[in-house]
Write a protein that binds this DNA or RNA. Structure first.
Lengths: 348, 348
DNA sequence: AACAAATATGTAATCGTTTACATAGAGGGC
DNA sequence: GCCCTCTATGTAAACGATTACATATTTGTT
């Protein structure tokens, strides 16, 4: 593997000069510059980033700690992060962890010397507390807000989004609106529940415990909860699932039970995953700009990395948008399946 | 940031001893070992991996070069890679590129000194040729087979999978079976086309150009192709889409046109993405074990990395499996939406 | 003509590790 | 008591870059 020394020898120059040419630091004669650049190219010299980061104490790499989550959310958030990072010349070191304190801590240490900063996605409410340990590198906390500590955080406008959806249902005349909740330990889930209750109160409706069903963001949970709701004497006329996966599970339960959506029961989800529009009926949801979330997290992190000294900690929130389709029967329903997709879906 | 020197000073020992303790190399007294380990833990010492990799010339990191692809495929393959890598104590450095020669090459160099090996997912047939440059580190080529060079490759059993699906359609009595193709520059697409033709020939049917429609793996393309097929005087009785996204697009075109599936036209896809089973009717497809694909790629790469000297190049292929649901009306149709999902879908 | 300033280049220290080699004391066999 | 072999530790040289400082050459000012 060719090193800077090899190039220097070949060019009859010192390594310092080569380094200066390649980094554009310090003065060099035009001729020397050309020679060395040409030589370096021909010899396929690429600086060893480990060596470089050792002396500059910069790695130009950002760490990403993600819980073991699946599907569209994962890929979208990485896309947002990577494109932003790449635009700034940074790489992404990705690590999946279980969202538990110990694992996160282990992963954090493993990143030492490899990254200039870390984005931690920690929807598990417990996990954030340990993160209070003063980290030596900048950290951005995603989908969770750490209590009174020293890192940036970025969250989804969960409460507002849920409130919008439920208010939408209320406007359609629904009074008995059920919710299929997420895990009580999940930050997003608790916020969405808060928004649900808020919207009901806004409408003068008293939240009712029997209409709040446990769930865990899985489609199986959505299915089970829907079955339970159907068994009630006083059925709800609308169901708000705290995420689309559960909404889809619920839809399939309703279909099996011969319940018409939205005529007998309206269904709304949260996330607006791509398949939402392909459901039958197409699922109304709360759109979350996932890639944007990732992009913004990296931007915040990069600011922390480059302005380490003066970087005021921030708490931001990306906004959501209500997307009305046929599953809630709203008047302004979106047209049936769109012909063009913003983004191409590539199979393999 | 605490270094090995700090620990050594605190322990009144030389850095060599500390290094030996922490790496379990060389002999140390039990007492010294305990002392240093305890101290290192308390001081939160973590070795600087850059420095370490400089001297050992190992990074314990694998690079992953992915085209800008979306959705489930991306996250699943990363999952498979990461879990395997983690099990071997390796990290993943992920970079998205456009699948073009220049970009791939740039990304490859940027990885120099950062990784011990690279997995390159290069479905674009052109891109593989440049990869022939003798890379200094091991490379595993995914979803593409490089011509007569020196890297491992791992592909999907595309041809066989497509053949199985089409044969299944033939067995149901179909004779006029259309295909919605992928890009002719895409390796998976061309192989699936090959499988389609093979199955037809096996059944004594002559492939017909008018039944082979262009597509690009996007749902929009599937929709458009289906519309075209419906406009033919002699409509096909079955459609095989080269991936699920196009199959879903086709389904929605058929629904809009009031064509019953599978009674009037049967539809089969490829990939078996998670939403396939939620379609109406549930979509028959060819299951691709995506996570496994990623896992196997990393395994091959790790073998190349650790047995650098004697590592015979291999060409492997992961097998697919036909999944019959209602969209092809096969007799042994899978039961309606499964109640439990192997993997939990977490929203955020 | 002399000297300062600017330009081009080289020398060597440094970053945080690992590790080959050196050293020193302890134990054992004769 | 001598030598050999362990065991435990220290010393210092790498690894491949960057960069402060030194040096030599050129240019410009007076």
């Amino acid at each position: 593997m060719v090193t800077i020394k090899d190039v220097a020898r070949e060019a009859n120059m010192s390594v310092a000069t080569v380094s200066r040419v390649l980094n554009g630091s310090g003065p060099v004669s035009e001729e020397t510059g050309r020679l060395i650049r040409e030589l370096a190219g021909r010899m396929r010299y690429v600086p060893h980033s480990g060596a470089r980061s050792l002396i500059t104490s910069k790695t130009e790499t950002l760490g990403v700690l993600l819980p073991d989550l699946y599907g569209e959310f994962f890929s979208e958030i990485i896309r947002g992060m990577d494109s932003t990072a790449q635009r700034h010349g940074f790489h992404l070191l990705i690590s999946r962890t279980y969202a538990d304190k110990h694992e996160i801590e282990t992963a954090m240490r493993a990143m030492r010397g490899r990254v200039d900063g870390v984005v931690v996605l920690s929807p598990d409410l417990d996990a954030d507390s340990l993160l209070n340990l003063p980290s030596t590198i900048p950290v951005v906390l995603l989908c969770s807000v750490a209590k009174g500590n020293e890192m940036d955080s970025l969250t989804i406008q969960n409460c507002r989004g849920a409130r919008d959806m439920v208010t939408h249902l209320v406007k359609l005349g629904h009074r008995r609106i059920a919710i299929i909740k997420g895990s009580p330990r999940n930050y997003d889930a608790t916020e969405r529940l808060r928004g649900y209750r808020m919207a009901l109160r806004d409408a003068g409706i008293t939240p009712e415990a029997s209409l709040e069903r446990e769930g865990d963001f899985s489609d199986a949970a959505g299915y089970a909860a829907a079955i339970e709701l159907l068994a009630m004497q006083k059925r709800p006329t609308a169901i708000f699932a705290a995420n689309d996966a559960m909404a889809i599970g619920a839809l399939s339960a309703l279909r099996e039970s011969g319940v018409r959506v939205p005529e007998e029961i309206a269904v709304g989800g949260f996330d607006d995953i791509p398949l939402a529009r392909y459901m039958d009926p197409p699922l109304s949801s709360v759109h979350v700009p996932i890639a944007e979330l990732g992009a913004r997290a990296v931007e915040m992190l990069l600011h922390g990395v480059t302005h380490k000294n003066d970087h005021p900690r921030r708490r931001e929130r990306v906004s959501t948008e209500l997307v009305i389709r046929r599953s809630t029967g709203g008047e302004s329903a979106e047209r049936p399946p769109p012909r063009t997709l913003k983004r191409e879906t590539v199979s393999t």
